[in-house]
Computed example of a mutant assay.
Amino acid sequence: MRHPALLQADWPAPAGVHGFTTLRHGAGVSAPPFETFNLGLRCGDALDAAMANRDELSRIGGLPSSPAWLQQVHGVGVVRVSEGPRIKGTPPQPVRPSGAAFGRSSDREPLVRDRSSSPPALAGEGAVDSEPEADAAVTSTSGTVLAILTADCLPVLLCSRDGDEIGAAHAGWRGLAAGVLEATVAAMRTPADRLMAWLGPAAGPDDYEIGVEVYDAFVSRDWRAGAAFASTRPNHWRVDLYALARRRLQQAGIEPDAIHGGGLSTIGEPDRFFSHRRDARTGRMATLAWFE
């Protein structure tokens, strides 16, 4: 659905696959500094305002169901979401896709968990409590809406060329370096060479300056990743998250010409995007996907 508060994903997705990122204005009721379309519940905004914005998102976005929101922790956890009644108090059960070994950095906890229930109706604190701790989600169930919150981190949408499976990942620099995109691709039932990706709005390469910690997190493991960094002063670089994400997705098996998006900057476009790096106390955009 076209709306001034929504930025449509620009990718050749199959008919029936929907994806977009929300903008900070054009809808919503949040007061400064979260004006006006903040979708985050943990950034300091009034809960009733953020919940009202989520209700409005469902209306203007034409969503077929309540989004499967996540508690994002800058990790590599992936949740598989499917329909079914939620049993109150029952946590998502761990599953492991065949042919892959998964684990968080400790290798003690399964990476992919099955959320075999539909999200609850958005109604205050219950919505917060129901959100599983993860930084990516995948689904093969039509009408299930995946959602990622960002304010400089990179949101990535995935879909099969057949349009029968989708994924969404939150790729800040920590998660990107740790392998959240590779984990999301591996969690999908569709082979990587049958997937396409869209890179949503993130901190742009002309605006995002980082230090040694970020540089080393990538270059110490892959010296070719150095091409995504441009030196600005001693021990500081501008980093191209889009270039790093494209490299990771290609290494995971996605064809280069199947990776779309990029070229935006949340830091550099204050009229359109929230940016934590720019404003510190700010709201969150949502990037959503589903298929019919």
Rank of each mutant, 00 (worst) to 15 (best):
A147D: 09
S130N: 08
P110H: 13
I267M: 05
G172F: 00
G283C: 08
P256N: 05
V138I: 15
P110C: 10
A187L: 03
T144P: 00
G204R: 04
A227T: 10
P132C: 04
R248Q: 13
Q72P: 01
P33H: 10
A15E: 15
D240E: 09
L199N: 08
H276F: 08
R194D: 09
V81R: 06
I267S: 00
R281M: 05
G172E: 01
G77R: 06
P201W: 10
G62F: 07
H3F: 10
R189V: 01
A243K: 12
T22M: 08
A177W: 01
G211H: 03
A68D: 03
R42V: 13
V185I: 07
Q251A: 14
Y208A: 00
G268M: 02
L63R: 12
P4H: 04
A121N: 14
A217C: 11
L149S: 07
A49W: 12
R189H: 12
A177I: 02
A136I: 02
R2W: 02
V79N: 04
M51R: 12
R238F: 11
T184G: 01
D240T: 08
L244M: 12
P92S: 11
P33W: 07
V78A: 01
G200I: 11
W223L: 11
S30C: 15
V128W: 11
D107W: 15
S140I: 06
A203I: 07
D55H: 15
L149G: 08
P110N: 14
R96F: 03
D152H: 09
S58T: 14
S275M: 07
I166Q: 01
G77F: 03
E182K: 11
Q251N: 09
G200F: 08
D271I: 04
V112P: 09
P234K: 11
V81A: 13
P119K: 04
T184L: 04
G262W: 05
G143D: 02
R108K: 15
G44N: 06
D135M: 04
L111R: 15
C153G: 03
I210T: 14
A27P: 05
